[in-house]
């Protein structure tokens, strides 16, 4: 899906996977999370642009639209139970697979020392 390097600590990216939009985050410690990109409160595909942080120890992302926080492990919204349409306010979550980097492509510069730079996220 993307190289581990494409993920900036504390920030996310959006990926298109079989027609579904996935938000992928890497936190400050290096852990990677994948949740749905659609913000249930606005209906916009923007979760990947939220700010990553913690709430009472849980890793969270705050929606950039109306700022509700979602637990990155469970997808559960920590601020509200229901979205405006009545559906439960939660993001789908996917497991994350990190795989070793493929042999360097032309033009790629190998990182000077090993992990974590040589890992790549796998397809979810």
């Amino acid at each position: 899906m993307c190289r581990y390097d494409d993920l900036a600590p504390g920030r996310g990216v959006a990926a298109l996977v079989e027609g579904q939009q996935v938000a992928v985050f890497r936190d400050r410690s290096g852990a990677v999370y994948a949740v749905g990109n659609r913000d249930p409160f606005s209906g916009a595909q923007v979760i990947s642009r939220g700010i990553v942080g913690s709430r009472a120890g849980a890793p969270v992302v705050a929606s950039p639209m109306y700022k509700q926080a979602f637990d990155l492990r469970s997808g559960r919204c920590l601020d509200e139970e229901c979205a405006p349409d009545g559906s439960p306010a939660a993001l789908p979550v996917w497991p994350v697979l990190l795989t070793p980097a493929e042999p360097a492509r032309a033009g790629d510069v190998a990182p000077p020392n090993g992990a974590p730079h040589e890992r790549e996220t796998g397809r979810s």
Binding site: A8, R11, V46, R49, I51, M65
Partner: peptide
């Protein structure tokens, strides 16, 4: 650097997020 990760989405993309993304 690390500052990029601190910015709200508007600052992060140097533009203003609207309701449809």
């Amino acid at each position: 650097g690390e500052q990029a990760a601190l910015q709200d989405t508007n600052d992060h993309f140097l533009a203003n997020l609207q309701r449809n993304g």
